[in-house]
Measured scan of single mutants.
Amino acid sequence: MIFPGATVRVTNVDDTYYRFEGLVQRVSDGKAAVLFENGNWDKLVTFRLSELEAVK
């Protein structure tokens, strides 16, 4: 189960963010908004829950 605050990895091989890890900001309607941070940039991207896996 994916909840806000969880760290997730993108599993969709066709996505630009494949294998990126980010922090879930919100979850609704089968989608999750994931925040990616890297140095001087932040990006908030929405994914279907089926495209994400929780990082242990």
Rank of each mutant, 00 (worst) to 15 (best):
38 N>R: 12
45 V>N: 03
28 S>M: 12
25 Q>G: 04
20 F>Q: 12
16 T>Y: 14
51 E>F: 06
45 V>D: 03
40 N>F: 10
39 G>A: 10
12 N>T: 07
25 Q>I: 15
11 T>S: 07
11 T>E: 03
33 A>W: 15
19 R>S: 12
13 V>M: 09
7 T>W: 15
39 G>D: 10
1 M>H: 12
20 F>R: 13
36 F>W: 02
26 R>F: 14
22 G>D: 01
37 E>N: 13
25 Q>L: 15
27 V>P: 00
42 D>W: 15
49 L>K: 03
50 S>M: 07
41 W>H: 10
20 F>G: 04
20 F>N: 06
47 F>Y: 14
26 R>N: 13
31 K>I: 12
29 D>R: 08
1 M>I: 09
39 G>M: 10
32 A>W: 02
15 D>Y: 04
4 P>L: 06
6 A>E: 07
50 S>H: 09
37 E>G: 11
5 G>A: 02
14 D>G: 09
40 N>L: 12
51 E>D: 14
10 V>I: 07
38 N>V: 13
25 Q>C: 14
46 T>S: 09
35 L>V: 06
14 D>S: 11
53 E>N: 04
53 E>F: 05
17 Y>S: 03
43 K>L: 14
51 E>S: 07
48 R>H: 14
55 V>Q: 04
31 K>E: 11
28 S>H: 13
5 G>R: 02
48 R>C: 14
2 I>R: 01
45 V>Y: 05
48 R>F: 15
31 K>N: 09
36 F>R: 00
26 R>E: 13
34 V>D: 00
50 S>R: 05
30 G>V: 03
23 L>C: 11
4 P>N: 05
24 V>N: 00
50 S>I: 08
17 Y>Q: 03
4 P>K: 08
3 F>K: 10
2 I>Y: 04
29 D>Y: 07
33 A>L: 15
35 L>T: 05
44 L>A: 06
41 W>M: 11
1 M>D: 14
55 V>K: 04
27 V>H: 01
44 L>T: 09
53 E>V: 10
5 G>L: 04
24 V>A: 03
20 F>C: 14
53 E>L: 06
2 I>V: 06
45 V>R: 09
35 L>P: 00
10 V>L: 02
3 F>T: 10
54 A>I: 15
40 N>A: 12
13 V>F: 07
16 T>S: 11
47 F>A: 03
43 K>Y: 10
21 E>G: 02
12 N>C: 06
23 L>A: 06
49 L>P: 04
7 T>C: 13
3 F>R: 11
15 D>R: 07
43 K>W: 12
51 E>T: 03
34 V>P: 01
15 D>Q: 08
3 F>D: 04
14 D>L: 13
14 D>N: 13
44 L>N: 04
30 G>K: 04
11 T>L: 08
18 Y>E: 01
53 E>I: 09
23 L>G: 02
32 A>K: 00
37 E>W: 11
9 R>Q: 06
40 N>R: 10
55 V>W: 04
2 I>H: 02
54 A>W: 12
26 R>M: 13
5 G>P: 01
3 F>C: 12
29 D>G: 10
50 S>L: 06
51 E>L: 04
56 K>A: 13
14 D>I: 08
4 P>I: 09
21 E>C: 12
41 W>E: 12
55 V>N: 03
50 S>Q: 09
2 I>S: 01
10 V>D: 01
39 G>F: 08
29 D>P: 05
